[in-house]
Amino acid sequence: MRIICLNGWGGTLAEPLLAYLGAAAPDVLCLQEVVHTPATDAVWLTYRDGDHVLPQRANLFRDVSSVLPHHTATFCPAARGVLWDGPASVPSYWGLATFVRADLAVIGQAQGFVHKAFSPDGYGDHPRSRTAHAVRIHDFERGEPVTIAHMHGLRDLRGKMDTPERLAQARRLAGLAAAVAAPGDRLVVCGDFNVQPGSATFAVLGELGLRDLVTGRGFSGTRSSHYRKPGAFADYMLVNDAVDVRGFDVVAAPEVSDHRPLLLEI
């Protein structure tokens, strides 16, 4: 089974992103920063937050679904805010999505918020609402289940330091994963955690028997050349001892986001 975890950067690099995902065809894709705008057929819209202006693929959820036509797609909204089509505002959902190959059986799942709650009337003040999704899948090849959970961790304008909110977020993620997994399950927890490698987040997840593959295998960061701020880490992939890791990579090329894809083979 091949699992990819990636922050899609709102589809800013949509063409290489869609080409990569279509060619990689993972069995499970955990994708964060997904834009879903059913109110428009526009291809591109613009995100504006003060001086921060970024092109957004208006229907990234639909576009990724089109290059993974044999997957079941689940979109988990964190907020409904506004994107811009020139001077016109367009209501748009923002969140994360999980894509599971359709011939795999999803035998359990849960969606929940790790920070705040759904924001229906705008993206809200920073740090904004964040959600997580966990799926329990029956792996027919192995004849046993695997539980996979991912989140997009809160963004604090002060940086990636530990805060009470981030500790609470880690506990909620751990609780969500534990609620979906059965005792003895293979367990994978991943996402853009928005924390540094030494974060207390990993102690919390360690209580579930999880260990991080990014730092554990000596990778020096998870950001691409499109990220020009200090701090090369954001994304992590953790597994428990029941997971037989056949391969793991922080994919450097092609560049499809300001984050690098995390590719796990089990």
Rank of each mutant, 00 (worst) to 15 (best):
M1L: 15
L6G: 00
N7K: 11
G10S: 09
G10E: 01
A19G: 15
Y20F: 15
A23L: 11
A24Y: 07
L31F: 14
V34D: 02
D41L: 09
A42H: 05
V43G: 13
W44S: 01
L45I: 10
Y47P: 05
D51Q: 10
D51W: 07
H52F: 15
A58C: 08
S65F: 03
C76L: 11
P77K: 06
A79E: 03
R80T: 14
W84E: 12
S92Q: 06
Y93T: 00
W94S: 06
G95H: 03
G95D: 00
L96Y: 02
A97N: 06
A97E: 05
A102I: 05
V106Q: 03
Q111H: 15
S119I: 06
Y123M: 06
S129Q: 08
A134R: 00
G143P: 10
P145M: 06
P145I: 03
G153W: 06
M161L: 09
L173H: 02
A178G: 09
G184S: 10
G198H: 02
V204K: 00
L205E: 03
E207G: 15
L210H: 08
L210E: 02
G218Q: 10
G221W: 06
R223W: 03
Y227W: 14
P230C: 14
D235K: 11
V239N: 02
R246V: 03
G247V: 09
A252E: 15
P254F: 04
E255K: 07
D258M: 04
R260D: 04
R260I: 04
L264M: 08
E265S: 13
I266V: 13
